[in-house]
Amino acid sequence: MINFTDVFFLAFAFMVIVSALMVIMSKNPIQSALYLVLAFFGSAGLWIMLNAEFLGLMLILVYVGAVMTLFLFVVMTVNFSINPLKNHRSKIIFGLALVAILLIALLKAISLQHYTPLINNAAILDPSNTHHLGSLLYTTYVYPFEIAGVLLLTAIIAAISLRGNAIQRNRKATDFAAQINVKANDRLKIIKMVAVQKTFEPLEPTE
């Protein structure tokens, strides 16, 4: 018996799997990025169905809003050469076989048990998911939370310093230190020249 929730679950799961497949199969990286956005939306729906409302919304806000925008910027900045796969065929087949074995093992391990249906749990929703998550994050997990903040700061500094050097080199602004330290000799050069009287020939009338 399929009820209303199952329809939503199936729709979101289908959306996630199809868009994940399109991410790895489409030739154009812009299409890949846009399909990844769709996969994030589907996952956010699934997470919200699992009562992780805060994280589902964070996935949309942070990932779709910030990270995928960054991806799209880079995809549009960088010029790609879109080549078909041709070499390293044996390595690819080996890798695919490895993934297939891993997937079969995973699915076998999963589907043998845990057929209990998921119901609405009270503990992770008390009083609301965001409230519960926040109160835990600022008390028990406050130290990892601070470390995560430092990590983000590190990422900011790293990204800016990676790109900052190039910006510093190419910028068209005034260098104030050089401007203050300038001397008269740098700007004005007096050269000795021999004074020569040049004689002009009178213009001939053309007509």
């Binding site: 799997i17 994940a20 991410v23 999963i110 998921l118």
Partner: peptide
């Protein structure tokens, strides 16, 4: 339909596709 194993299969498929 919305069992734990359904979500685990979905996650395993996502991981495999990646």
């Amino acid at each position: 339909m919305m069992t734990l194993s359904a979500f685990l299969i979905l996650a395993a498929l996502l991981f495999g596709i990646g």
